[in-house]
Design a protein around this nucleic acid. Structure first.
Length: 591
DNA sequence: GTGAAGGGCCAC
DNA sequence: AAACGTGGCCCTTCAC
């Protein structure tokens, strides 16, 4: 492919180019940076392509004249990038959005992301990859050479071939979008694509903001856990080596407590009937009879705390900001949920000693909001089950109300056991629980578990019907969808019984879990607009929870905005039951 | 040494 | 096959 490009290094040429570019409907958009972390490098190039020709803007000469964030010379570019039109087409736009926001102080407007679109079209197919090279090859059947990707973009003079490489990536985006949008339309994914694209800037801003982690507090907590770890490790070591008396005579029985095989062997020597796996749920029943098993479980707990939530997380504190800037994958799961890594701050233990380390900066407050039982409300909406809906409309404790309905007693006569059964079932039906698992988790006999589940589904006939239909539909359609139209595709052999039952559970769960993700994403978009011009910043999201940080003086008004945005987003998808959001203002994540 | 796989456990 | 879904991270084990 012949590439027509122009390298721009001065204000006059830039102004002229921007005047032309702004008349386009779509522009391929890409940046080249000297690092992966916007706090650690500079933007070297910005490429904008009509598909026919590509403008490559070298920011280095501009940066040498004045700060990019305030540069008057860049005003036309800033205007072009922030405008909703032309639509900027980028691959993994979050990356470019972060750099533009941090270095140019520009919030990108009007984005089409070929990475997110490709993920939506793949509909959960784990075999598909979504690098620009793969996506280009899949949709355009042309090969893209990415060998220059790791080039040195800080050199004072960039070679012609390097500039051409930069131009080519941006030029690819226009035809790529044309192919992708056809497929999005054909698959009914336009609405969900917009939902995703609207979410890019809020997430980019969140990653730049980061979450403040109090290092001193974290280290204090670490010390406490370390002390109990060494104590528990010693005790477990002694209890385990009691079974190998002759070995301990030689004083060489160091059992690796983290080794599955060594611990299993030691337990066997002690006469413990070890199950096939030594996972907590299998070991739990044995813990009462065998103190060594209880000790092992205790050890596992502290070991996990120390390894996953130990010193390592402190290495993620960005030296320039003093904060944690995790990486959020917008379509982290096929259901549409986010995933989070480096570090994963969606899995910080709920224990107060850990959560309280994540706190507001000086003079700031955290505003913490979460959806109350959003997945069950979605299930009520989907199933249209009048009893289930009534349980929410009553406004009383949902699980108690459900127990009263299922066991046909007055709410005030519901026993703790009955409430617990109802709660576990309410929770479990979302995942497609079976009676075997229900019996296991409640300690009920199989027949008693079946009896309670029958009562449950007899009470909620509409819910039962919806779940059965979801399981039936996924087998015939081989797809499931959320309220926004997000799709998950299932591929399995006709006679693979295990795969079928898994797909059936997925068919029930995906629309619910995925609609919850839809709602959160919609809320982030609505919220972002409301926070404009305020001190409020997004710092973390955990599936149904949103955490903001704002000046203490703006905490109340921010809390109000947050609750309104989350409710409004929920109400776009849920109308038959109320959407409830719990909001609190706190100094720490814990409180 | 490095990397994948398996087991285990944290979150929602 | 925990017949309850989605992730990420840590450790050991094992192959290269």
């Amino acid at each position: 492919m012949e590439i027509y490009f122009q390298l721009i290094t001065d204000a006059q040429t830039l102004q002229k180019a921007c005047d032309q570019l702004k008349t386009e409907d779509f522009l391929g958009f890409d940046t080249e940076t000297t690092a992966l972390d916007p706090y650690e490098g500079e933007i070297r190039l910005i490429q904008l392509s009509t598909g026919r020709e590509t403008q490559v803007i070298d920011l280095k000469p501009f940066a040498e004249r004045e700060s990019l964030r305030t540069s008057l010379e860049l005003a036309p570019l800033r205007e072009l990038l922030s405008a909703p039109k032309p639509i900027k087409i980028a691959h993994n736009a979050k990356f470019d959005a972060k750099w533009i926001l941090h270095h140019l102080d520009v919030e990108i407007g009007g984005v089409f992301d070929t990475l997110l679109a490709s993920q939506l079209i793949a509909a959960g197919d784990q075999d598909r990859r979504h690098s620009l090279a793969e996506v280009t090859s899949y949709f355009l059947s042309t090969e893209l050479d990415k060998s220059e990707q790791v080039s040195d973009w800080s050199a004072s003079e960039l070679s012609q071939s390097l500039i051409e490489y930069a131009a080519r990536d941006a030029a690819t985006m226009v035809p790529l979008r044309e192919k992708i949008i056809e497929k999005l339309k054909a698959d009914g994914l336009i609405q969900v694509a917009k939902l995703e694209f609207d979410c890019i800037v809020p997430i980019a801003a969140m990653e730049l903001n980061g979450f403040y982690l109090d290092e001193a507090r974290w280290r204090e907590q670490l010390e406490r856990v370390k002390i109990s770890q060494s104590k528990v490790a010693l005790e477990l070591q002694q209890m385990l080596s009691a079974g190998v008396a002759q070995a301990s005579l030689f004083g060489m029985t160091e059992i690796n407590l983290d080794s599955q095989t060594q611990v299993t062997d030691a337990l066997k020597n002690l006469g413990v009937p070890v199950p096939e796996t030594t996972r907590g749920w299998q070991l739990q029943p044995l813990a009462l009879e065998y103190p060594v098993v209880a000790k092992l479980l205790e050890y596992r707990g502290v070991a996990k705390s120390l390894s996953s939530f130990g010193e390592n997380i402190l290495e993620f504190i960005q030296s320039k900001t003093g904060r944690i800037h995790s990486d959020f994958r917008q379509i982290g799961a096929p259901t549409g949920r986010f995933s989070c890594s480096k570090p994963n701050i969606q899995q910080i233990p709920h224990e107060e000693n850990y959560r309280r380390c994540f706190r507001a900066g000086d003079g700031k407050k955290l505003i913490i909001a979460d959806y109350s039982q959003v997945e069950l409300r979605i299930l009520a909406e989907f199933s249209n089950d009048q009893n289930f809906i009534n349980a929410f409309l009553s406004g009383e404790d949902f699980h108690t109300t459900a127990a009263a309905q299922v066991f046909n007693v007055k709410p005030e006569d519901v026993t703790p056991d009955q409430r617990s059964f109802a709660k576990r079932l309410n929770f479990g039906v979302v995942y497609g629980i079976g009676s075997q698992r229900f019996a296991m988790m409640t300690g009920l006999k199989q027949t008693d578990a079946e009896d309670i589940m029958r009562r449950y589904f007899a009470t909620y006939r509409g819910l039962d019907a919806w779940l059965r239909d979801a399981a039936r539909k996924v087998v015939t359609d081989r797809t499931a969808r959320t309220a926004s139209g997000r799709m998950m595709r299932f591929r399995y052999d006709e006679d693979d019984r295990k795969a079928i039952s898994l797909a059936q559970r997925n068919g029930k769960n995906m629309p619910i879990q995925g609609t919850s993700a839809d709602i959160l994403k919609r809320a982030l978009h609505l919220l972002h607009r409301e926070m404009n011009g305020t001190s409020a910043r997004l710092v973390n999201i955990v599936h149904d929870e949103v955490i903001l940080e704002a000046d203490a003086s703006e905490a109340e008004s921010t809390a109000d905005k947050l609750e309104k945005a989350m409710c409004a987003a929920g109400e776009e998808y849920i109308s038959k039951v109320p959407v409830k959001v719990d909001v609190k203002i706190a100094d720490e994540w814990a409180k």
